[in-house]
Design a protein around this nucleic acid. Structure first.
Lengths: 181, 181
DNA sequence: CACCCCCTATATCGCTTCGATATATGCTCG
DNA sequence: CGAGCATATATCGAAGCGATATAGGGGGTG
């Protein structure tokens, strides 16, 4: 799943600028399972245009910078659909949090507790955002994917809430006086 | 969470070769939340040695290629612990499967069903492997992290089993005769 | 028993991608 | 009225991925 495919997927659903593609892949309904940065989107769009899979036209705007609006071509639509027939790669999951958790016994209990609470707050926030997103999107395939995401984050959150004290208990105890310093 | 940090984390728990580090980050207890390939591990280890954070010695072996065994130094141990005090980056989750699911309405129902069943089998396999891993590891921090993983994959698997027919129903119906062709 | 593939083991190369930065302007809020 | 944020494009250096090269031993199959 490279950035070119992500761009085609988003353009398949409607025209967009590079800026908008990045927003959708960072905040929109694609945010939690794909992502791409400017540094990869702009070169990807340029290459897609060379290959004839997308087309662009510049739209001047009063005040604001000019937009370069990209549209998918028939060839692009075909290429994207073909790519959906290919074997799916494995999901990627990387978590600095779990590495941190793995080394809890090396760390002071108050730090471990702080990070766990931060994590819990982040997950609550993510769930809230996904629920908002679900209300904005009526298409059943969007709802299906977003529900999947909510289920996963919810169970991770609940596991954390139920088992955080176990991890804190493994960490280095901090004396009251030391903690107050 | 860069590859250098992953190498230090693994060497923190014991000496290892580049090959073993890669195995641990691909099949071992780190596998499902960190990952690194040869192309990043070997350069990372070389740079860590330059920086004095790890040390290596070559061990000749009868028949097999010589091993280059890396050990963490006191400086490396300190640098790794310091990195655990830094703010944690967000988790990364990328899923070609969810992109595929999002576009189910564009695809033939039999393909969607095939991919869903493949996915279910993969997740069952992942759960089995994590359960085996959990029996091999007695340290409570390992068990905590692995349990977290099992919970997440289990709920994803159950969601899939419960809702896969919804996605198949959204896909393009395939006529019996056409399917037989 | 030859052949082939897999496992161990190190290492590099090219391409993709990330993260930071540059540039420019308008809008909003304190 | 100035700081900071949103819109918008684009590039650069560094990091990392995936494939490939190299090489010998072990195991299974025709």
């Amino acid at each position: 799943m490279n950035v070119k495919t992500i761009c085609l997927a988003i353009l398949h659903e409607g025209d967009a600028t590079g800026y908008e593609i990045r927003k959708l892949s960072t905040e929109g309904e694609y945010a939690y399972f794909v992502e791409a940065s400017f540094g990869s989107i702009y070169p990807a769009l340029a290459r897609l245009e060379e290959e004839g899979l997308v087309r662009s036209h510049v739209q001047q705007q009063a005040g604001r910078p000019a937009k370069k609006i990209y549209s998918i071509t028939d060839a692009g639509r075909a290429a994207f659909r073909d790519s959906l027939f290919e074997d799916l790669g494995d999901d990627v999951y990387r978590s600095a949090f779990l590495l941190f958790a793995r080394f809890a016994p090396e760390l002071p209990a108050d730090l471990v507790e702080t990070r766990l609470r931060e994590r819990l707050a982040k997950q609550d926030d993510a769930i809230r955002k996904l629920k908002d997103l679900q209300e904005e999107h009526q298409s059943p395939q969007d709802r299906w994917v977003i529900s999947y995401g909510i289920s996963c984050i919810q169970v991770a959150r609940d596991y954390l809430a139920a088992h955080m004290h176990e991890l804190i208990a493994l960490a280095q105890p901090v004396a009251e006086a030391e903690a107050a310093e």
